[in-house]
Design a protein around this nucleic acid. Sequence first.
DNA 1: ATAATATAGTGTAGTTTCTACACACTATAT
DNA 2: ATATAGTGTGTAGAAACTACACTATATTAT
Lengths: 231, 231
Amino acid sequence: MEQNLPKFESVFSIDCVIFGFENGELKILLIERNEEPFKDWKALPGYIVKQDESLDDAAERILYELTGLRGLHMEQFHTFGDVDRHPQGRVITVAYYALLRLNGQKELKPLSAIAKTAFWHPVNELPKLGFDHSEIFKTGFNKIRRRLGYQPIAFELLPEKFTLTQLQSLYEAILNKKLDKRNFRKKMLSYGFLKELDEKQKGVSYRAAKLYKFDRRKYSKIFQNELNLDS
Amino acid sequence: MEQNLPKFESVFSIDCVIFGFENGELKILLIERNEEPFKDWKALPGYIVKQDESLDDAAERILYELTGLRGLHMEQFHTFGDVDRHPQGRVITVAYYALLRLNGQKELKPLSAIAKTAFWHPVNELPKLGFDHSEIFKTGFNKIRRRLGYQPIAFELLPEKFTLTQLQSLYEAILNKKLDKRNFRKKMLSYGFLKELDEKQKGVSYRAAKLYKFDRRKYSKIFQNELNLDS
DNA sequence: ATAATATAGTGTAGTTTCTACACACTATAT
DNA sequence: ATATAGTGTGTAGAAACTACACTATATTAT
Protein backbone atom coordinates (compact mmCIF):
# COMPACT_ATOMS: atom_id res chain seq x y z
CA MET A 1 0.00 0.00 0.00
CA GLU A 2 1.48 3.33 -0.95
CA GLN A 3 1.60 6.53 0.94
CA ASN A 4 -1.48 8.49 -0.02
CA LEU A 5 -4.13 6.17 1.17
CA PRO A 6 -5.22 6.31 4.78
CA LYS A 7 -4.82 3.19 6.86
CA PHE A 8 -7.91 1.19 7.33
CA GLU A 9 -7.86 -1.85 9.53
CA SER A 10 -10.29 -4.13 7.96
CA VAL A 11 -10.86 -7.53 6.63
CA PHE A 12 -12.57 -8.58 3.52
CA SER A 13 -14.33 -11.82 3.20
CA ILE A 14 -16.38 -13.81 0.80
CA ASP A 15 -19.43 -15.87 1.67
CA CYS A 16 -20.95 -18.34 -0.70
CA VAL A 17 -24.56 -19.33 -1.15
CA ILE A 18 -24.42 -22.45 -3.27
CA PHE A 19 -27.63 -24.04 -4.45
CA GLY A 20 -28.05 -27.61 -5.50
CA PHE A 21 -31.01 -29.63 -6.62
CA GLU A 22 -31.56 -33.29 -5.95
CA ASN A 23 -34.62 -35.52 -5.71
CA GLY A 24 -36.93 -32.63 -6.33
CA GLU A 25 -35.47 -30.74 -3.42
CA LEU A 26 -33.55 -27.51 -3.42
CA LYS A 27 -30.53 -27.56 -1.16
CA ILE A 28 -27.84 -25.26 0.02
CA LEU A 29 -24.25 -25.93 0.89
CA LEU A 30 -23.24 -25.40 4.51
CA ILE A 31 -20.21 -26.08 6.62
CA GLU A 32 -19.82 -26.84 10.26
CA ARG A 33 -17.26 -24.45 11.66
CA ASN A 34 -14.22 -25.66 13.48
CA GLU A 35 -12.98 -22.26 14.61
CA GLU A 36 -14.04 -19.41 16.78
CA PRO A 37 -16.12 -17.40 16.46
CA PHE A 38 -19.18 -19.56 16.03
CA LYS A 39 -17.18 -22.75 16.49
CA ASP A 40 -19.43 -25.78 15.97
CA TRP A 41 -22.09 -23.64 14.39
CA LYS A 42 -23.39 -24.14 10.92
CA ALA A 43 -22.56 -21.40 8.48
CA LEU A 44 -22.14 -20.54 4.84
CA PRO A 45 -18.76 -21.42 3.40
CA GLY A 46 -16.83 -18.20 3.65
CA TYR A 47 -13.43 -16.85 4.50
CA ILE A 48 -11.01 -14.05 4.07
CA VAL A 49 -9.79 -12.57 0.82
CA LYS A 50 -6.06 -12.39 0.27
CA GLN A 51 -4.18 -9.25 -0.41
CA ASP A 52 -3.43 -9.96 -4.02
CA GLU A 53 -6.41 -11.82 -5.34
CA SER A 54 -9.52 -10.47 -7.00
CA LEU A 55 -12.89 -11.03 -5.42
CA ASP A 56 -13.90 -13.53 -8.05
CA ASP A 57 -10.71 -15.51 -7.60
CA ALA A 58 -11.09 -15.41 -3.86
CA ALA A 59 -14.61 -16.75 -4.09
CA GLU A 60 -13.47 -19.70 -6.11
CA ARG A 61 -10.52 -20.46 -3.88
CA ILE A 62 -12.43 -20.16 -0.64
CA LEU A 63 -15.23 -22.37 -1.79
CA TYR A 64 -12.70 -24.95 -2.83
CA GLU A 65 -10.79 -24.88 0.42
CA LEU A 66 -13.87 -25.17 2.55
CA THR A 67 -15.87 -27.69 0.59
CA GLY A 68 -13.70 -29.27 -2.08
CA LEU A 69 -15.89 -27.92 -4.86
CA ARG A 70 -14.44 -25.91 -7.68
CA GLY A 71 -15.03 -24.64 -11.16
CA LEU A 72 -18.47 -23.25 -10.39
CA HIS A 73 -19.64 -20.13 -12.05
CA MET A 74 -20.17 -17.78 -9.14
CA GLU A 75 -21.63 -14.32 -9.16
CA GLN A 76 -21.61 -11.72 -6.45
CA PHE A 77 -25.01 -10.51 -5.35
CA HIS A 78 -24.58 -8.21 -2.35
CA THR A 79 -22.02 -6.80 0.03
CA PHE A 80 -22.67 -6.81 3.74
CA GLY A 81 -20.78 -4.20 5.69
CA ASP A 82 -22.43 -3.39 8.98
CA VAL A 83 -19.90 -2.33 11.54
CA ASP A 84 -20.77 -5.03 14.02
CA ARG A 85 -21.59 -7.92 11.77
CA HIS A 86 -18.47 -9.80 12.85
CA PRO A 87 -17.66 -10.19 16.54
CA GLN A 88 -13.94 -9.78 16.05
CA GLY A 89 -13.70 -6.57 14.13
CA ARG A 90 -14.61 -4.89 10.95
CA VAL A 91 -15.25 -7.51 8.35
CA ILE A 92 -16.95 -6.61 5.14
CA THR A 93 -18.15 -9.54 3.15
CA VAL A 94 -19.07 -9.90 -0.47
CA ALA A 95 -21.68 -12.58 -0.95
CA TYR A 96 -21.62 -14.81 -3.98
CA TYR A 97 -24.02 -17.37 -5.25
CA ALA A 98 -23.75 -20.28 -7.62
CA LEU A 99 -25.91 -23.10 -8.81
CA LEU A 100 -24.71 -26.64 -9.10
CA ARG A 101 -25.91 -29.92 -10.50
CA LEU A 102 -25.95 -32.48 -7.77
CA ASN A 103 -25.60 -35.99 -8.95
CA GLY A 104 -24.52 -37.58 -5.74
CA GLN A 105 -21.08 -37.99 -7.26
CA LYS A 106 -19.40 -34.85 -6.06
CA GLU A 107 -17.68 -35.37 -2.82
CA LEU A 108 -17.61 -32.70 -0.19
CA LYS A 109 -14.34 -32.62 1.65
CA PRO A 110 -13.00 -29.54 3.37
CA LEU A 111 -9.29 -29.05 2.77
CA SER A 112 -8.96 -26.39 5.37
CA ALA A 113 -9.23 -26.87 9.09
CA ILE A 114 -11.75 -24.08 9.34
CA ALA A 115 -14.54 -26.38 8.35
CA LYS A 116 -15.20 -29.62 10.15
CA THR A 117 -17.58 -30.80 7.47
CA ALA A 118 -19.40 -29.56 4.43
CA PHE A 119 -22.86 -30.83 3.58
CA TRP A 120 -26.04 -30.16 1.66
CA HIS A 121 -29.06 -29.00 3.53
CA PRO A 122 -32.61 -28.48 2.22
CA VAL A 123 -33.43 -24.79 1.94
CA ASN A 124 -36.56 -25.32 3.91
CA GLU A 125 -36.06 -25.66 7.65
CA LEU A 126 -32.59 -24.19 7.63
CA PRO A 127 -30.91 -24.23 11.03
CA LYS A 128 -29.71 -21.05 12.67
CA LEU A 129 -26.47 -19.97 11.01
CA GLY A 130 -23.49 -18.16 12.45
CA PHE A 131 -22.77 -14.45 11.84
CA ASP A 132 -25.43 -12.79 9.70
CA HIS A 133 -25.47 -15.75 7.36
CA SER A 134 -29.18 -16.36 7.68
CA GLU A 135 -29.78 -12.93 6.29
CA ILE A 136 -27.21 -13.42 3.56
CA PHE A 137 -28.89 -16.63 2.55
CA LYS A 138 -32.28 -14.98 2.43
CA THR A 139 -31.06 -12.14 0.28
CA GLY A 140 -29.40 -14.58 -2.07
CA PHE A 141 -32.44 -16.76 -2.36
CA ASN A 142 -34.56 -13.78 -3.30
CA LYS A 143 -32.08 -12.76 -5.97
CA ILE A 144 -32.18 -16.22 -7.44
CA ARG A 145 -35.93 -16.16 -7.58
CA ARG A 146 -35.88 -12.88 -9.43
CA ARG A 147 -33.20 -14.02 -11.77
CA LEU A 148 -35.08 -17.19 -12.59
CA GLY A 149 -37.53 -15.02 -14.51
CA TYR A 150 -35.06 -13.60 -16.95
CA GLN A 151 -31.96 -15.76 -16.97
CA PRO A 152 -31.49 -19.42 -17.79
CA ILE A 153 -30.20 -20.33 -14.37
CA ALA A 154 -32.39 -23.35 -13.85
CA PHE A 155 -30.31 -25.38 -16.28
CA GLU A 156 -27.24 -25.00 -14.15
CA LEU A 157 -28.98 -27.00 -11.47
CA LEU A 158 -30.11 -29.86 -13.66
CA PRO A 159 -28.14 -32.64 -15.26
CA GLU A 160 -27.33 -32.05 -18.89
CA LYS A 161 -30.23 -34.23 -19.94
CA PHE A 162 -33.43 -33.72 -18.06
CA THR A 163 -37.16 -34.25 -18.34
CA LEU A 164 -39.68 -31.47 -18.42
CA THR A 165 -41.09 -32.72 -15.15
CA GLN A 166 -37.72 -32.30 -13.51
CA LEU A 167 -37.45 -28.80 -14.89
CA GLN A 168 -40.88 -27.97 -13.62
CA SER A 169 -40.25 -29.30 -10.17
CA LEU A 170 -37.11 -27.19 -9.98
CA TYR A 171 -39.09 -24.09 -10.83
CA GLU A 172 -41.60 -25.07 -8.22
CA ALA A 173 -38.90 -25.52 -5.63
CA ILE A 174 -37.35 -22.13 -6.29
CA LEU A 175 -40.58 -20.22 -6.58
CA ASN A 176 -42.18 -22.23 -3.82
CA LYS A 177 -45.45 -22.75 -5.61
CA LYS A 178 -47.19 -25.25 -7.85
CA LEU A 179 -47.28 -24.66 -11.58
CA ASP A 180 -49.68 -26.01 -14.16
CA LYS A 181 -48.11 -28.85 -16.09
CA ARG A 182 -49.58 -28.13 -19.49
CA ASN A 183 -48.99 -24.42 -19.36
CA PHE A 184 -45.48 -24.86 -18.11
CA ARG A 185 -44.57 -27.19 -20.94
CA LYS A 186 -46.22 -25.08 -23.55
CA LYS A 187 -44.33 -22.03 -22.45
CA MET A 188 -40.94 -23.64 -22.02
CA LEU A 189 -41.10 -25.30 -25.39
CA SER A 190 -42.32 -22.13 -27.05
CA TYR A 191 -39.09 -20.38 -26.21
CA GLY A 192 -37.33 -22.67 -28.58
CA PHE A 193 -34.13 -23.22 -26.65
CA LEU A 194 -34.91 -26.70 -25.43
CA LYS A 195 -33.67 -29.47 -27.65
CA GLU A 196 -35.65 -32.66 -27.63
CA LEU A 197 -33.40 -35.71 -27.60
CA ASP A 198 -33.99 -39.16 -29.08
CA GLU A 199 -33.56 -40.58 -25.68
CA LYS A 200 -35.71 -41.45 -22.75
CA GLN A 201 -35.35 -41.57 -19.06
CA LYS A 202 -34.05 -44.90 -17.74
CA GLY A 203 -34.56 -46.88 -14.60
CA VAL A 204 -38.01 -45.71 -13.67
CA SER A 205 -40.88 -48.07 -12.98
CA TYR A 206 -43.37 -46.20 -15.10
CA ARG A 207 -43.60 -44.69 -18.52
CA ALA A 208 -40.25 -43.08 -19.27
CA ALA A 209 -40.19 -39.40 -20.11
CA LYS A 210 -38.40 -37.80 -23.02
CA LEU A 211 -35.12 -36.15 -22.27
CA TYR A 212 -34.28 -32.58 -23.23
CA LYS A 213 -31.16 -30.50 -23.37
CA PHE A 214 -30.70 -26.79 -22.89
CA ASP A 215 -29.31 -25.27 -26.06
CA ARG A 216 -27.24 -22.34 -24.90
CA ARG A 217 -26.42 -21.16 -28.39
CA LYS A 218 -30.02 -20.94 -29.39
CA TYR A 219 -30.79 -19.23 -26.14
CA SER A 220 -28.30 -16.45 -26.69
CA LYS A 221 -29.44 -15.97 -30.23
CA ILE A 222 -33.01 -15.57 -29.12
CA PHE A 223 -32.30 -13.27 -26.24
CA GLN A 224 -29.37 -11.27 -27.49
CA ASN A 225 -31.47 -8.15 -27.89
CA GLU A 226 -33.01 -8.35 -24.47
CA LEU A 227 -29.79 -8.81 -22.64
CA ASN A 228 -27.92 -6.35 -24.69
CA LEU A 229 -28.85 -3.36 -22.61
CA ASP A 230 -25.53 -1.61 -23.08
CA SER A 231 -26.24 1.32 -25.27
CA MET B 1 -9.11 -5.21 15.13
CA GLU B 2 -8.61 -8.13 17.44
CA GLN B 3 -6.06 -10.85 17.37
CA ASN B 4 -7.56 -13.70 15.40
CA LEU B 5 -8.03 -12.02 12.09
CA PRO B 6 -5.14 -11.82 9.67
CA LYS B 7 -3.91 -8.40 8.67
CA PHE B 8 -5.10 -7.20 5.35
CA GLU B 9 -3.83 -3.94 4.01
CA SER B 10 -6.68 -2.61 2.09
CA VAL B 11 -8.94 0.28 1.62
CA PHE B 12 -12.62 0.35 1.20
CA SER B 13 -14.36 2.94 -0.79
CA ILE B 14 -17.77 3.93 -1.99
CA ASP B 15 -18.59 5.27 -5.42
CA CYS B 16 -21.90 6.87 -6.22
CA VAL B 17 -23.85 6.82 -9.44
CA ILE B 18 -26.48 9.49 -8.96
CA PHE B 19 -29.09 10.01 -11.63
CA GLY B 20 -31.08 13.15 -12.16
CA PHE B 21 -33.67 14.16 -14.71
CA GLU B 22 -34.16 17.63 -16.11
CA ASN B 23 -35.64 19.01 -19.32
CA GLY B 24 -36.30 15.56 -20.65
CA GLU B 25 -32.69 14.59 -20.21
CA LEU B 26 -31.18 12.00 -17.94
CA LYS B 27 -28.06 13.19 -16.17
CA ILE B 28 -25.45 11.86 -13.85
CA LEU B 29 -23.53 13.54 -11.09
CA LEU B 30 -19.77 13.88 -11.57
CA ILE B 31 -16.97 15.64 -9.82
CA GLU B 32 -13.75 17.04 -11.08
CA ARG B 33 -10.96 15.64 -8.99
CA ASN B 34 -8.51 17.86 -7.19
CA GLU B 35 -6.23 15.11 -5.97
CA GLU B 36 -3.96 12.48 -7.31
CA PRO B 37 -4.48 9.99 -8.75
CA PHE B 38 -6.52 11.21 -11.67
CA LYS B 39 -6.16 14.83 -10.59
CA ASP B 40 -8.22 17.07 -12.90
CA TRP B 41 -10.08 14.10 -14.27
CA LYS B 42 -13.78 13.70 -14.10
CA ALA B 43 -14.99 10.89 -11.91
CA LEU B 44 -17.88 9.57 -9.92
CA PRO B 45 -18.19 11.01 -6.45
CA GLY B 46 -16.46 8.47 -4.28
CA TYR B 47 -14.14 8.17 -1.35
CA ILE B 48 -12.93 6.06 1.46
CA VAL B 49 -15.05 4.39 4.13
CA LYS B 50 -14.15 5.09 7.74
CA GLN B 51 -13.29 2.44 10.21
CA ASP B 52 -16.43 2.69 12.24
CA GLU B 53 -19.19 3.52 9.81
CA SER B 54 -21.45 1.19 7.92
CA LEU B 55 -21.41 1.14 4.15
CA ASP B 56 -24.75 2.86 3.90
CA ASP B 57 -23.67 5.61 6.25
CA ALA B 58 -20.43 6.03 4.42
CA ALA B 59 -22.24 6.39 1.12
CA GLU B 60 -24.38 9.15 2.48
CA ARG B 61 -21.49 11.00 4.09
CA ILE B 62 -19.19 10.76 1.10
CA LEU B 63 -21.78 11.98 -1.31
CA TYR B 64 -22.45 14.91 0.96
CA GLU B 65 -18.82 15.83 1.35
CA LEU B 66 -18.09 15.70 -2.33
CA THR B 67 -21.20 17.28 -3.72
CA GLY B 68 -23.21 18.90 -0.95
CA LEU B 69 -26.17 16.60 -1.58
CA ARG B 70 -27.69 14.60 1.22
CA GLY B 71 -30.70 12.68 2.32
CA LEU B 72 -30.90 10.60 -0.85
CA HIS B 73 -32.06 7.06 -0.70
CA MET B 74 -29.05 5.16 -1.98
CA GLU B 75 -28.74 1.49 -2.71
CA GLN B 76 -25.66 -0.54 -3.37
CA PHE B 77 -25.59 -2.39 -6.67
CA HIS B 78 -22.18 -3.98 -7.12
CA THR B 79 -18.76 -4.30 -5.56
CA PHE B 80 -15.67 -3.86 -7.67
CA GLY B 81 -12.58 -5.54 -6.36
CA ASP B 82 -10.03 -6.20 -9.04
CA VAL B 83 -6.55 -6.16 -7.64
CA ASP B 84 -5.30 -3.39 -9.88
CA ARG B 85 -8.34 -1.20 -10.17
CA HIS B 86 -6.69 1.54 -8.13
CA PRO B 87 -3.18 2.72 -8.98
CA GLN B 88 -2.15 3.18 -5.37
CA GLY B 89 -3.00 -0.12 -3.82
CA ARG B 90 -5.77 -2.47 -3.06
CA VAL B 91 -8.99 -0.55 -3.02
CA ILE B 92 -12.26 -2.36 -3.08
CA THR B 93 -15.23 -0.22 -3.83
CA VAL B 94 -18.90 -0.68 -3.24
CA ALA B 95 -20.95 1.15 -5.82
CA TYR B 96 -24.22 2.79 -4.90
CA TYR B 97 -26.85 4.43 -6.95
CA ALA B 98 -29.59 6.89 -6.21
CA LEU B 99 -32.15 8.85 -8.14
CA LEU B 100 -32.86 12.47 -7.53
CA ARG B 101 -35.38 15.09 -8.58
CA LEU B 102 -33.55 17.96 -10.17
CA ASN B 103 -35.36 21.22 -9.95
CA GLY B 104 -32.48 23.51 -10.57
CA GLN B 105 -32.69 24.55 -6.94
CA LYS B 106 -30.26 22.16 -5.41
CA GLU B 107 -26.84 23.60 -5.26
CA LEU B 108 -23.79 21.49 -5.80
CA LYS B 109 -20.93 22.54 -3.61
CA PRO B 110 -18.13 20.21 -2.58
CA LEU B 111 -17.20 20.57 1.07
CA SER B 112 -14.08 18.54 0.74
CA ALA B 113 -10.96 19.56 -1.11
CA ILE B 114 -10.96 16.29 -3.00
CA ALA B 115 -13.43 17.62 -5.50
CA LYS B 116 -12.87 20.85 -7.36
CA THR B 117 -16.43 20.95 -8.61
CA ALA B 118 -19.51 18.80 -8.79
CA PHE B 119 -21.82 19.02 -11.76
CA TRP B 120 -24.53 17.27 -13.71
CA HIS B 121 -23.68 15.69 -16.99
CA PRO B 122 -26.01 14.08 -19.55
CA VAL B 123 -25.65 10.31 -19.57
CA ASN B 124 -25.13 10.35 -23.28
CA GLU B 125 -21.70 11.44 -24.41
CA LEU B 126 -20.09 10.88 -21.04
CA PRO B 127 -16.43 11.89 -20.93
CA LYS B 128 -13.73 9.44 -19.99
CA LEU B 129 -13.79 8.95 -16.23
CA GLY B 130 -10.96 8.20 -13.83
CA PHE B 131 -10.32 4.76 -12.33
CA ASP B 132 -12.80 2.14 -13.56
CA HIS B 133 -15.65 4.58 -13.15
CA SER B 134 -16.86 4.28 -16.70
CA GLU B 135 -17.46 0.61 -16.11
CA ILE B 136 -19.11 1.30 -12.77
CA PHE B 137 -21.42 3.76 -14.40
CA LYS B 138 -22.36 1.32 -17.13
CA THR B 139 -23.11 -1.43 -14.67
CA GLY B 140 -25.24 0.94 -12.62
CA PHE B 141 -27.14 2.19 -15.60
CA ASN B 142 -28.00 -1.33 -16.61
CA LYS B 143 -29.24 -2.12 -13.12
CA ILE B 144 -31.47 0.92 -13.20
CA ARG B 145 -32.96 -0.13 -16.50
CA ARG B 146 -33.77 -3.52 -15.14
CA ARG B 147 -35.17 -2.16 -11.96
CA LEU B 148 -37.38 0.25 -13.83
CA GLY B 149 -39.45 -2.73 -14.90
CA TYR B 150 -40.37 -3.87 -11.44
CA GLN B 151 -39.79 -1.03 -9.00
CA PRO B 152 -41.27 2.45 -8.87
CA ILE B 153 -37.96 4.21 -9.26
CA ALA B 154 -39.07 6.63 -11.93
CA PHE B 155 -41.00 8.68 -9.42
CA GLU B 156 -37.88 9.46 -7.46
CA LEU B 157 -36.60 11.36 -10.45
CA LEU B 158 -39.69 13.44 -11.05
CA PRO B 159 -41.10 16.35 -9.10
CA GLU B 160 -43.91 15.41 -6.79
CA LYS B 161 -46.46 16.56 -9.33
CA PHE B 162 -45.79 15.58 -12.87
CA THR B 163 -47.54 15.09 -16.18
CA LEU B 164 -47.85 11.79 -17.96
CA THR B 165 -45.74 13.14 -20.76
CA GLN B 166 -42.93 13.86 -18.34
CA LEU B 167 -43.21 10.38 -16.95
CA GLN B 168 -43.10 8.91 -20.41
CA SER B 169 -40.10 10.91 -21.49
CA LEU B 170 -38.27 9.71 -18.40
CA TYR B 171 -38.98 6.12 -19.29
CA GLU B 172 -37.79 6.83 -22.78
CA ALA B 173 -34.59 8.39 -21.49
CA ILE B 174 -33.80 5.43 -19.28
CA LEU B 175 -34.74 2.75 -21.73
CA ASN B 176 -33.35 4.69 -24.64
CA LYS B 177 -36.29 4.07 -26.92
CA LYS B 178 -39.53 5.66 -27.98
CA LEU B 179 -42.76 4.46 -26.43
CA ASP B 180 -46.29 4.73 -27.76
CA LYS B 181 -48.17 7.51 -26.04
CA ARG B 182 -51.57 5.91 -25.83
CA ASN B 183 -50.32 2.55 -24.73
CA PHE B 184 -48.01 4.06 -22.17
CA ARG B 185 -50.81 6.06 -20.55
CA LYS B 186 -53.24 3.19 -20.62
CA LYS B 187 -50.77 0.94 -18.89
CA MET B 188 -49.55 3.39 -16.28
CA LEU B 189 -53.07 4.39 -15.33
CA SER B 190 -54.22 0.78 -15.23
CA TYR B 191 -51.82 0.08 -12.36
CA GLY B 192 -53.90 2.35 -10.19
CA PHE B 193 -51.11 3.97 -8.21
CA LEU B 194 -51.18 7.30 -10.00
CA LYS B 195 -53.42 9.88 -8.44
CA GLU B 196 -54.92 12.43 -10.77
CA LEU B 197 -54.83 15.90 -9.26
CA ASP B 198 -57.25 18.80 -9.78
CA GLU B 199 -54.40 20.82 -11.03
CA LYS B 200 -52.77 21.59 -14.31
CA GLN B 201 -49.35 22.42 -15.53
CA LYS B 202 -48.56 26.12 -15.50
CA GLY B 203 -46.43 28.38 -17.60
CA VAL B 204 -46.57 26.53 -20.87
CA SER B 205 -47.64 28.16 -24.09
CA TYR B 206 -49.94 25.40 -25.13
CA ARG B 207 -52.71 23.34 -23.65
CA ALA B 208 -51.73 22.56 -20.09
CA ALA B 209 -51.50 18.91 -19.08
CA LYS B 210 -53.08 17.38 -16.00
CA LEU B 211 -50.80 16.76 -13.08
CA TYR B 212 -50.46 13.43 -11.32
CA LYS B 213 -48.93 12.23 -8.12
CA PHE B 214 -47.41 8.86 -7.27
CA ASP B 215 -49.37 7.24 -4.48
CA ARG B 216 -46.83 5.17 -2.63
CA ARG B 217 -49.37 3.66 -0.26
CA LYS B 218 -51.53 2.39 -3.05
CA TYR B 219 -48.45 1.10 -4.78
CA SER B 220 -47.36 -1.00 -1.85
CA LYS B 221 -50.84 -2.35 -1.34
CA ILE B 222 -51.03 -3.45 -4.94
CA PHE B 223 -47.60 -4.98 -5.10
CA GLN B 224 -47.15 -6.35 -1.63
CA ASN B 225 -47.55 -9.90 -2.82
CA GLU B 226 -45.10 -9.59 -5.64
CA LEU B 227 -42.39 -8.05 -3.60
CA ASN B 228 -42.96 -10.28 -0.68
CA LEU B 229 -40.70 -13.05 -1.86
CA ASP B 230 -39.48 -13.92 1.59
CA SER B 231 -40.95 -17.26 2.37
C1' DA C 1 -51.37 -62.76 -20.09
C1' DT C 2 -53.64 -59.51 -17.23
C1' DA C 3 -54.35 -56.03 -14.15
C1' DA C 4 -52.64 -52.44 -11.20
C1' DT C 5 -49.84 -48.48 -10.73
C1' DA C 6 -47.47 -44.40 -11.55
C1' DT C 7 -46.20 -40.86 -14.34
C1' DA C 8 -46.00 -38.89 -19.38
C1' DG C 9 -48.11 -36.32 -22.60
C1' DT C 10 -51.61 -33.61 -24.86
C1' DG C 11 -55.77 -29.27 -26.58
C1' DT C 12 -59.11 -25.85 -26.14
C1' DA C 13 -61.90 -21.98 -24.91
C1' DG C 14 -62.19 -17.75 -22.39
C1' DT C 15 -59.69 -13.88 -20.59
C1' DT C 16 -56.24 -10.61 -20.35
C1' DT C 17 -52.63 -8.02 -22.09
C1' DC C 18 -50.06 -6.04 -25.94
C1' DT C 19 -49.55 -3.59 -30.21
C1' DA C 20 -50.30 -0.44 -33.86
C1' DC C 21 -52.33 3.44 -35.20
C1' DA C 22 -54.77 9.10 -36.17
C1' DC C 23 -57.34 12.84 -35.06
C1' DA C 24 -59.96 16.31 -32.40
C1' DC C 25 -59.10 19.41 -28.34
C1' DT C 26 -57.25 23.49 -25.90
C1' DA C 27 -54.30 27.06 -24.17
C1' DT C 28 -51.25 30.58 -25.74
C1' DA C 29 -49.06 33.92 -28.87
C1' DT C 30 -49.42 36.85 -32.74
C1' DA D 1 -58.98 34.90 -36.05
C1' DT D 2 -55.52 32.03 -36.87
C1' DA D 3 -51.22 29.50 -36.25
C1' DT D 4 -48.77 26.63 -33.05
C1' DA D 5 -47.58 23.02 -30.02
C1' DG D 6 -48.56 19.62 -27.14
C1' DT D 7 -52.81 17.11 -24.69
C1' DG D 8 -55.91 13.46 -24.53
C1' DT D 9 -58.54 9.72 -26.27
C1' DG D 10 -60.51 4.28 -28.58
C1' DT D 11 -60.44 0.23 -31.13
C1' DA D 12 -59.47 -3.97 -33.50
C1' DG D 13 -56.33 -7.79 -34.11
C1' DA D 14 -52.65 -10.51 -32.19
C1' DA D 15 -50.37 -12.69 -28.63
C1' DA D 16 -49.95 -14.52 -24.13
C1' DC D 17 -52.07 -16.41 -20.07
C1' DT D 18 -55.26 -19.29 -17.34
C1' DA D 19 -57.96 -23.12 -15.98
C1' DC D 20 -58.93 -27.56 -16.65
C1' DA D 21 -59.10 -33.72 -17.38
C1' DC D 22 -58.25 -37.54 -19.85
C1' DT D 23 -55.56 -41.05 -22.63
C1' DA D 24 -50.98 -43.30 -23.37
C1' DT D 25 -47.20 -46.10 -21.89
C1' DA D 26 -43.67 -48.45 -19.27
C1' DT D 27 -43.13 -51.31 -15.22
C1' DT D 28 -44.41 -54.48 -11.60
C1' DA D 29 -47.15 -57.83 -9.31
C1' DT D 30 -50.32 -61.66 -9.83
